[in-house]
Deep mutational scan, measured.
Amino acid sequence: MAAGGDHGSPDSYRSPLASRYASPEMCFVFSDRYKFRTWRQLWLWLAEAEQTLGLPITDEQIQEMKSNLENIDFKMAAEEEKRLRHDVMAHVHTFGHCCPKAAGIIHLGATSCYVGDNTDLIILRNALDLLLPKLARVISRLADFAKERASLPTLGFTHFQPAQLTTVGKRCCLWIQDLCMDLQNLKRVRDDLRFRGVKGTTGTQASFLQLFEGDDHKVEQLDKMVTEKAGFKRAFIITGQTYTRKVDIEVLSVLASLGASVHKICTDIRLLANLKEMEEPFEKQQIGSSAMPYKRNPMRSERCCSLARHLMTLVMDPLQTASVQWFERTLDDSANRRICLAEAFLTADTILNTLQNISEGLVVYPKVIERRIRQELPFMATENIIMAMVKAGGSRQDCHEKIRVLSQQAASVVKQEGGDNDLIERIQVDAYFSPIHSQLDHLLDPSSFTGRASQQVQRFLEEEVYPLLKPYESVMKVKAELCL
């Protein structure tokens, strides 16, 4: 049975990233139509530049190519590739079939990587351009969430054990800070992308030097003109047959890092959902379990974690691919890159769409948070109580021993009897502590235990987050809708 299948058929496997999760716009960027249309555009740009620099290419040939950029006979191309065992030459023939007058000058002087690699770089750039505003929107939604809850005390956790208090907004800023680093890295790697350009079979530009009869300047002009037509500021000066596969490492490393950030955020949300302090959106008709109707599973956060793990592992592909590119190139890269580049971007696209949807509907339960604080705060307040007693004339050592005994009794009630923490009640009825009984409410005010959390939130948002989001103001209103 021949390899390949009808990918629109229910009898043929289709990647869930495309069929179930990723956005239509990201799927289109990695589609065959987008790819092969870009090949034709690159052939047109090459012909236009070659004509401008004096090669015998007519206006009629150029116009014929322009008129057929979208006229792609995919069936013919597939048949040609089956016959020739070469995808680029299959599309040269297919393009030439609908451009008979231009057929002889299509791909003039070029090698397969002229269309293959340059198209990949265009796709990487455009895919990054799709991700950047999506990530900015996630940051914006979380920034709104953090600002609104900047002063809401909550129990902090280290080692997932109760620690000092923080605020809900401050905790959210930990998430935002990681995503801001990801946004900066995505922008950097996007701006650092260079075009492969017009380089020939081993990167020496020998074929173009021959076409222009040894004119170095025209060869350099050709490279520059096509690079500018493709919208790049610069091209690699040095290439082998391909652009260095280190570029793929750079791009997928940034995406993998984004995956790590999203995994951490969504894990926190899942843990908070278990504590009943916070939940992701839950639709009115949504079913959490087929057997347990009360369940409210954090399905979206779980999906993000599941896909983020996949995204983090994909960076190993370009690392290994770059390491086995012998001399000017081997074909070890080809099949692998067809999979890992598309999957990385479709996965990143999915987790950003999902995280935006989550961040637009996060639900906080202040009463649950308050109750958990009441359970733990008495123990945390013991040092403040000791200091207040010393100020009232008591002995630190005597007070410490009193607190120690009462704390152990209260802990026994919590752990052995399943009761509430009654340390404060014990202190309130103990005559030894009568000098500070009137101060206990103040000493137990949760806001006095959150330090500068709310001020940190305000400063972080104003100095770091809002300036970073400013270039994306025009796209901030787009909502994230999930079908599944």
Rank of each mutant, 00 (worst) to 15 (best):
S12A: 13
P24D: 14
K35F: 06
W39Y: 15
L46M: 09
A47Q: 04
E48N: 05
A49S: 13
I57S: 03
D59C: 14
M65V: 09
K66F: 08
K66R: 09
K75L: 10
M76C: 15
E80G: 10
L84W: 15
V88W: 00
H91A: 15
C98L: 13
L108G: 06
L108N: 07
G109N: 04
A110M: 04
T119F: 08
D120N: 08
L124T: 15
D129F: 13
L130Y: 09
K134W: 09
V138P: 05
A143T: 10
A143E: 03
D144P: 12
A146S: 11
R149A: 08
L152N: 10
P153Y: 06
T154I: 10
L155Y: 03
G156S: 14
F157E: 02
F160L: 06
P162Q: 12
P162W: 08
L165R: 03
T166M: 10
T167E: 03
C172I: 08
L174E: 09
W175H: 00
I176C: 12
Q184E: 14
R188L: 06
V189H: 07
F195Q: 02
G200I: 00
T201A: 03
T204A: 09
G214K: 10
D216K: 06
E220W: 12
Q221R: 13
V226G: 01
A235L: 12
I238H: 07
I249F: 09
L252Y: 05
K264V: 04
I269Q: 04
M278Q: 04
E280N: 00
P281G: 09
I287V: 06
G288A: 09
P293W: 02
R296M: 11
D317N: 11
L319C: 00
S323C: 09
Q325Y: 03
T330R: 03
N336T: 15
R337H: 04
R338F: 00
I339C: 13
C340R: 03
D349A: 13
T350K: 06
L352N: 02
N357R: 05
P366K: 08
K367F: 03
V368A: 06
E370F: 14
R372S: 06
R374A: 08
L377T: 00
F379W: 07
T382Y: 05
E383N: 04
E383H: 02
A392G: 12
Q397R: 06
E401S: 12
Q409H: 10
A410N: 04
A411P: 04
A411H: 02
V413G: 09
G419S: 10
D422Q: 07
F433I: 05
I436V: 09
S438P: 13
A453K: 03
Q455V: 10
F460A: 03
L461W: 07
E463I: 10
V465E: 02
E473H: 13
